[in-house]
């Protein structure tokens, strides 16, 4: 478990450092996700060395974003003011996205 955590945080650090030094507009954790995928594909890192930590993190992913969700209370008045246009735009966009994504696979006969 300790080794797995070291790998996960190591790749996170690598991602953060890359973002910092190259000043690219991508978050360090997203680069870290990309790097660890590459390292696994290229067999630099073994799956069983990282899996104990990654499985636990994904299992509790939902818990980790609760504090941000609670933070919405600070912006309650803004949301209340624009709730109708936000709801319309977000629901319409989500339905269109669902359909575009699904129809491409449906039409390919998969």
């Amino acid at each position: 478990m300790l080794k797995a955590l070291a790998y996960i945080f190591g790749f996170l650090l690598l991602g953060e450092v890359t973002t910092y030094f190259f000043e690219i507009p991508i978050a360090g954790n997203i680069l870290g996700m990309f790097f660890i995928f590459l390292a696994l594909r290229l067999k630099i890192v073994k799956l069983q060395d990282v899996k104990p930590a990654s499985d636990k993190l994904i299992k509790y992913l939902v818990l980790f974003f609760i504090p941000y969700g609670v933070g919405l209370m600070v912006y309650f008045e803004i949301i209340a003011e624009y709730w109708l246009p936000i709801s319309v735009a977000v629901i319409a966009s989500t339905v269109i996205t669902l359909y575009i994504s699904a129809i491409i696979i449906e039409k390919s006969g998969k």
Partner: peptide, 14 residues
């Protein structure tokens, strides 16, 4: 708690 979002995104790569 939200600090763990960072490593969780890396875990998505796994």
């Amino acid at each position: 708690i939200s600090f763990f979002l960072g490593p969780s995104v890396v875990a998505l790569g796994v």
